[in-house]
């Protein structure tokens, strides 16, 4: 049986091996992923991001427990859930300690759950290079919901909004979010905002502040005035991000969060936004691949040392990077 067939037949060991091959960008894994590609596109991809220490892993643990305990409407069975948790690699050794499973011990032993930890391996946007590929494989084998937990470095983590359908941004009281929030970025990508550890004194202030800031930080996508935006929200064309309070260690607020995630999915489907996001995501994935391939192709065509030579001249400030690339490209094409 081929690897793809084994994986599709529900062989979890084969799935785990495939994920490793994808992570290491081994050709056999990437070919298998291509075979699986027609089966992708069904899972609801939910990103969970936010600063370190806000309780993302604990929240994911509770959320998955909840999702596994309730059957959603028409379906008789609860959704199956995969978790991909990304932690940072050490810039010095390239090694990593991946500790998200510590908080997800309640999920052990459930065949409807699959958890995979991955190291960021030098990537900066909160995900690893191979995260999208691994998510595709989990999607293909039929997980209904895939939760993607980002590194948690904060402001720069906007990759997740491109990868996920629904982005949950987690913060906690007194985490300095009052200032960070104004810098937008992370709040702009939020479809749902969670103030976790809401039993800490001061949580009300954080909730109030985030609600107020959200109104300002939210871009007016369609470049129209507020009254039109309000109308669009009322019509369900535009999504108004909500701010929810949770205490993940106690399980408080988890049901509301789960419902809000499902509501966002329904909104994406009903408004046509699902297809738009899907299109944008696939476009950026293809563009990235094209860039990588063109670069690799160009490098193999270059006579030995020409690029290095240009690099030296740029380092010596004799050329600008733009001029160097222009001179390298001369005579190409």
């Amino acid at each position: 049986m081929s690897l793809a067939a084994k994986v599709m037949a529900g062989d979890r060991l084969a799935l785990a091996r495939l994920l490793t091959q994808i992570e290491n960008e081994e050709l056999v894994g990437l070919d298998c992923l291509s075979d699986l590609y027609p089966h992708t596109g069904r899972a609801h991809l939910v990103g969970v991001t936010g600063a370190p220490g806000t309780g993302k892993s604990t929240l994911v643990n509770r959320l998955v427990l909840h999702m596994r305990s309730v059957a959603d409407g028409k379906e008789a069975e609860p959704a199956t859930v995969a978790v991909v948790a990304v932690d940072p690699s050490s810039p010095f050794s390239g090694g990593a300690i991946l500790g998200d499973r510590i908080r997800m011990r309640d999920l052990a032993g459930d065949p409807g759950v699959f958890i995979r930890s991955m190291a960021s391996r030098g990537a900066l946007g909160g995900l690893a290079r191979a995260t999208a590929g691994m998510v595709q494989a989990l999607d293909a084998v039929g997980f209904d919901i895939i939760l993607i937990e980002t590194v948690g470095a904060g402001q720069a983590e906007v990759d997740i909004a491109r990868t996920a359908h629904t982005t949950v941004v987690v913060s906690a009281p007194s985490m300095g979010d009052e200032i960070q929030a104004i810098k937008a970025g992370i709040l702009e990508i939020a479809d749902i905002l969670v103030v976790n550890k809401a039993d800490i004194p001061g949580a009300d202030n954080t909730l109030r502040f985030l609600r107020a800031t959200l109104q300002m930080a939210r871009p007016m996508r369609y470049g129209r005035g507020d009254h039109i935006r309000d109308q669009m929200e009322a019509d369900g064309v535009m999504w108004e991000p909500s701010v929810l309070a949770t205490v993940a260690t106690q399980g408080d607020g988890i049901e509301s969060l789960s419902q809000e995630i499902a509501r966002h999915r329904a909104h994406l489907r009903a408004s046509g936004e699902w297809a738009v996001r899907e299109g944008e995501r696939i476009r950026s994935e293809m563009e990235l691949l094209l860039r990588e391939h063109l670069t690799a192709q160009f490098m193999t065509r270059q006579p030995d040392g020409r690029f290095e030579e240009a690099l030296e001249r740029v380092i010596a400030r004799k050329l600008s990077p733009r001029q160097a690339i222009a001179s390298l490209l001369e005579g190409e094409g």
Binding site: S93, G94, G95, G99, R101
Partner: peptide
Amino acid sequence: ARALRDAGMEVIYTG
């Protein structure tokens, strides 16, 4: 776990 990380390994720590 730290020693293994410092040697460049990816260490899944479950506690």
